[in-house]
Amino acid sequence: MEVSLDLILQACWETLYMVSISLVFGSLIGLPLGILLVVTRKGHILENAFVFSILNPIVNILRSIPFIILLVAIIPFTRFIVGTAIGTTAAIVPLVLHIGPYMSRLIENSLLEVDKGIIESAQAMGATPLQIIFCFLLPEALPSIVLSITTATIGLIGATAMAGAIGGGGLGDLAITYGYQRFSTITIVVTVVILVLLVQGIQSLGNLIERKIRRM
């Protein structure tokens, strides 16, 4: 049985839906978490061993669980949040839990790249910790943060391919069900081409925005 154009468009839509919603919620978790991981560490502006020693292992644990396992392991939690454990929307819950911590590490690295001298000059001016974060750290790290978010988005596209396991749909699911299980080579080729174009497009867009911000 061959795949129809409708099915492909449907799958594209599902992937974009999962990626964009997960990205928004993932950022809402990843950005603050990344900032906290930086500012609460030893010697930083809001040094707090207690908070850091709780957040750091949590992020590590979530980061070390393979996504396919996370997907099924948190089914009760997913049902609690969205009312169902299967379908495209249900897939968003594990995707967010997967990408949030990942993004927090990327953001953490971006913020750590900011020269210590910048923070020092802010402290010398009498900036509050919040002012240091929003007027100094984030603007200085912005180009790098854009690249981090780009990397996270591409990671999300990869993760959505596994969402089929809980009926999430999307391009990855299409490739498995039609291409692999029903031997439709054309489906595999088409979905791979679409995925490659999608990833290329997102990376180019990210690079473009980053260069714009750095005025290059």
Binding site: D115, I118, E120, E140
Partner: peptide, 12 residues
């Protein structure tokens, strides 16, 4: 006020 060897200006 304070000034530094490596200026510490905001590039952004």
């Amino acid at each position: 006020g304070m000034i530094f060897q490596h200026f510490n200006l905001l590039r952004s």
